[in-house]
């Protein structure tokens, strides 16, 4: 336990690094992934405005990024990371691959969230002479909101755990802290403390996500 107190500043820093990574990557993924998800839904074959060829291309890109093992993506995009943040090590550099991985991940979830809604309200809106933009804003996003909040929760939880891998580029974070002390230095106590912190973080995210989703869902 003494050791933990000794490492407290480092532990705090690691926690803050995790917050920074998740705090930038997830909002960016939501901001950029949501339009991609909507786009995939709208232009799917048999969708509101089918664009089968372009859809196949975009869908293919999304699948490609998603199927890259995270560590390989991390390394593959190093030149891009340097271009974007000027460095390839540290928390800022780790945020780039995390975000790039999270965007298509979140986009697919949003696409699914909207697909599950059923076509009734969209049909009624078309009959009311709504534009495509009006249908997206006033119907699809409104009815998909609880599900999308659920997707934000899932993405956040997944990427808290992904962020443990960015130690490879010196990204830091609580997961990396656990690996460094537990795996490389055999300081099991320290590792356990870090893992408990991660579990608490994930539990908190999941609990608040579920709660907010339930509050916005008016179907029951």
């Amino acid at each position: 336990m003494e050791r933990v107190v000794e490492l407290l500043p480092e532990l705090t820093e690691a926690m803050l690094q995790t917050f920074a990574m998740i705090g930038v990557a997830i909002p960016l993924a939501v901001l950029l992934g949501t339009p991609v998800g909507i786009w995939l839904f709208i232009h799917a074959p048999g969708g509101i405005a089918p664009l089968p060829k372009t859809h196949a291309v975009v869908s293919g890109i999304v699948n490609t990024i998603r199927s890259f093992p995270f560590l390989i993506l991390l390394i593959a995009i190093i030149p891009f990371t340097r271009l974007l943040v000027g460095t390839t090590v540290g928390t800022a550099a780790a945020i780039v691959p995390l975000t790039i991985n999270a965007i298509p991940y979140f986009a697919r979830l949003v696409e699914q969230n909207i697909t599950q809604l059923g076509t009734g309200a969209v049909e009624a809106s078309r009959a009311m002479g709504a534009t495509r933009g009006q249908i997206i804003r006033n119907v699809l996003l409104v009815d998909a909101k609880p599900a999308i909040i659920g997707s934000i929760t899932i993405t956040t939880v997944s990427f808290i755990s992904y962020s443990a891998m960015v130690g490879l580029v010196g990204g830091g974070g609580i997961g990396d802290f656990a690996i460094r002390y537990g795996y490389y230095r055999y300081e099991t106590d320290v590792m356990l403390v870090a893992i408990v912190l991660m579990v608490l973080l994930v539990t908190l995210v999941q609990w608040s996500g579920t709660r907010v989703a339930r509050l916005t869902d008016k179907r029951v």
Partner: peptide
Amino acid sequence: MIFQGFNLVNNL
């Protein structure tokens, strides 16, 4: 237009 399934927006 009205429909068999009502087609209302559930969250409004």
